[in-house]
């Protein structure tokens, strides 16, 4: 005879628990993990390359690339000399904590201070799956428009830092910074917002400063 069992669990619960474990392990190892998300072409790889070049002398950096089915981005990153591995998402449109853990094992976090995960280019489901990262960083690029927060609210709610990229192209688009900022802060009052150009380097110093501060805090928290 079959019996009815009440479960009452969110589908994401098991992933959330796994993600919590990943974070604890990262803390013990003193590794700060950033989950970098954006629409396809938002500028994740370009931002990463410039960031690695700027910070590689002061911290040990490792990168995990989750390109759906090519190694293009991984090749681009390896030119910087940083340690990079390709994650195998099996054609999935998002990464979960389990896949992140496998990637971290391959990367070997003991001798990495800053690990960065380039998530799949998509603003919907990467927001729903906690990867176990310490902080979520999202890139919104100027050509995508200032109304993205209205269309993809969850992504803005789960992110800690927002990079508004491609500001060198501002004159070609009518991107309203104040309207965008207001929409973002309404969804997430604690969001750190940094306008940058990954192409020219404008605004990047503030971003590096944010990373330095975060890495330092995380290492102290793990002591």
């Amino acid at each position: 005879m079959y019996k009815v069992y009440e479960i009452k669990k969110r589908i994401f619960d098991d992933n959330d628990q796994e993600a919590e474990k990943v974070r604890e392990e990262l803390k013990a190892d003193g590794t700060f993990l950033i989950n970098l998300m954006s629409s396809p072409g938002g500028g994740k790889t370009t931002t990463l390359k410039r960031t690695i070049d700027a910070l590689k002398e002061e911290m040990r950096i490792g990168v995990m690339e989750a390109d759906i089915d090519s190694a293009v981005d991984a090749d681009a990153i390896s030119e910087t000399g940083a340690k990079v591995i390709q994650l195998h998402t099996g054609g999935m449109c998002h990464l979960d904590a389990d896949m992140t853990r496998q990637g971290l094992e391959e990367l070997g976090t003991e001798d990495i201070d800053l690990a960065i995960l380039e998530n799949v280019g998509n603003l919907v489901c990467p927001a729903e799956f906690d990867t176990g990262a310490v902080k979520n960083v999202m890139i919104l690029s100027v050509p995508e428009g200032d109304d993205k927060p209205l269309k993809y609210p969850l992504m803005f709610q789960v992110s800690h830092c927002l990079l508004i990229n491609k500001i060198d192209a501002l004159s070609c688009f009518d991107f309203d910074f104040d309207a965008c900022r207001e929409r973002v802060l309404r969804l997430n009052p604690d969001m750190k917002i940094i306008p940058i150009s990954a192409k020219t380097g404008e605004g990047m110093d503030e971003w590096y400063g944010w990373i330095r501060e975060q890495v330092k805090e995380w290492k102290e928290a793990g002591k």
């Binding site: 005879m1 079959y2 019996k3 009815v4 069992y5 009440e6 479960i7 009452k8 669990k9 969110r10 589908i11 994401f12 209205l150 609210p153 969850l154 309404r186």
Partner: peptide
């Protein structure tokens, strides 16, 4: 959507509708 049809305000939040839960199973 996000804008209140009664008064036009944007000060709104979702109460229900983004669930994704396992409610129950039949099993032995």
């Amino acid at each position: 959507g996000r804008q209140c049809p009664h008064c036009g305000s944007w000060e709104t939040y979702l109460v229900t509708g983004d669930e994704c839960n396992i409610r129950e199973i039949e099993a032995q």
